[in-house]
Simulated assay, not measured.
Amino acid sequence: MLVARPHDPGRRTAHVADSARRPASRYGNRPTMKDVAARAGVGLKTVSRVVNGESGVTADTERRVREAIEALGFRRNDSARVLRKGSTASIGLVLEDLADPFYGPLSRAVEEVARAHGALLINGSSAEDPDREQELALALCARRVDGLVVIPAGDDHRYLLPELKAGVATVFVDRPAGRIDADTVLSDSFGGARDGVAHLIAHGHTRIGFVGDLPRIHTAAERLRGYRAAMEEAGLRVDDAWVSLGPTSPERVEGATAAMLAGPEPVTAVFSGNNRVTVTVLRVLAAHPRPVALVGFDDFELADLLSPGVTVVAQDAAELGRTAAERLFRRLDGAAGGPERVTLPTRLIARGSGEIPPA
């Protein structure tokens, strides 16, 4: 049974008003550059220059073009632009964990460099899973990003060789690539850890524990190497019970720290391998009956407001991201030469926790 729709004057009025606001294009419903040019009374090339931010257009002409764009509701067709120019003006960033405070400044720095080059940043987390890293990196390549900034989760990046040969510029940051040669930007994890442990030794400690991340991670291995180097340079032995590497879960870190503090030769100081480990170690030390010195790798929010403040080996996450992104865009602009490795220095910030003497 057919039922006539009741007359709705408001519906008709709204439709007419919308049509008046956005005239239909003679090339379809979506306005084109030709429509904008006709309305503004200029040539197609002039509209293209205004849309793409190019020079050579007077202020009055640019104003007329922009008024026509606004009146018509014109939007640039980036898909067509990609087909013409062969680039998407986008880059991908593969992080370990977007929730980790260390990666916030790094991601922001990459985004700012991309923005300065007129590019869009697309990022995602690998969750420290090599398979997920590969899946994410290849998905970004499939979406035709011009380049990648990758914080590796795995140690074999040969899966990217076809993409590199196809022209996808790639820079690895924080950790080097595995089994391929590629541009890399690192912090001095070895030197920073050696300095942090040497600082504890200088304040009288000889039994120093090290609690770090998974040993397969480059930064964790380098910080352990720095710890051992500082102990060896001071002529101090390292008991196996004073070293623990593994997941950064609170349960694992709490157990490892408690064992070091309760052993037959309890440590009087702890060097923690990253900010997540440091936070958990702090909770254990807060409940411990005697004072224990602490130096952590990575600065973190409110570290200076605790009592005592937390002494840290700080790396510049923003500078890591900025340096990696600038290197990426130099490659995209045609910079030649073989892969380069840049190592940025760290900085020891003494705030009190690393200056506690042995109890």
Rank of each mutant, 00 (worst) to 15 (best):
M1A: 08
A4Y: 04
R11K: 07
H15N: 07
H15I: 03
R21M: 14
R22V: 12
S25G: 15
R26W: 11
G28Y: 02
G28H: 02
T32W: 06
T32E: 05
M33V: 08
K34L: 13
D35S: 02
A40H: 07
G41H: 02
V42D: 00
V47E: 09
V47M: 08
S48K: 02
R49C: 05
V51C: 04
G56R: 11
A59Q: 15
R66T: 08
R66V: 06
I69W: 05
I69F: 04
A71Q: 15
R75V: 15
R76F: 09
D78F: 03
R81Y: 03
L83N: 06
L83D: 06
G86K: 04
S90M: 14
G92W: 11
L93N: 06
E96M: 12
A99D: 08
D100C: 07
Y103H: 14
S107I: 04
E112W: 01
V113P: 01
V113Y: 10
A116C: 04
G118A: 07
A119E: 06
S126H: 06
D129Q: 05
C141S: 05
A142G: 15
V145Q: 03
D146E: 08
D156A: 11
Y159E: 13
L160R: 10
P162M: 13
L164R: 15
G167N: 10
A169H: 05
T170Y: 10
F172R: 11
V173A: 15
S189T: 00
S189V: 01
A193D: 07
R194K: 14
D195L: 12
A202I: 00
H205M: 06
I208G: 06
G209P: 07
G209F: 10
V211S: 10
G212C: 12
D213W: 13
P215F: 12
P215V: 04
A220I: 08
G226M: 00
A229Y: 09
A234L: 10
G235P: 14
L236D: 12
W242L: 05
V243M: 05
L245W: 01
E254P: 01
A258L: 11
A259I: 00
G263C: 05
P266V: 03
T268F: 03
A269T: 11
G273V: 09
N274Y: 02
T278A: 08
T280V: 14
V281K: 08
V284I: 13
P291D: 10
V292A: 03
F300T: 07
E301T: 00
L302G: 00
A303E: 06
L305H: 03
V310P: 05
V310K: 04
V312M: 09
Q315G: 13
D316W: 12
E319I: 10
A324E: 11
D333F: 01
D333N: 13
R341T: 15
R341N: 03
L344G: 10
P345Y: 14
R347N: 12
I349G: 07
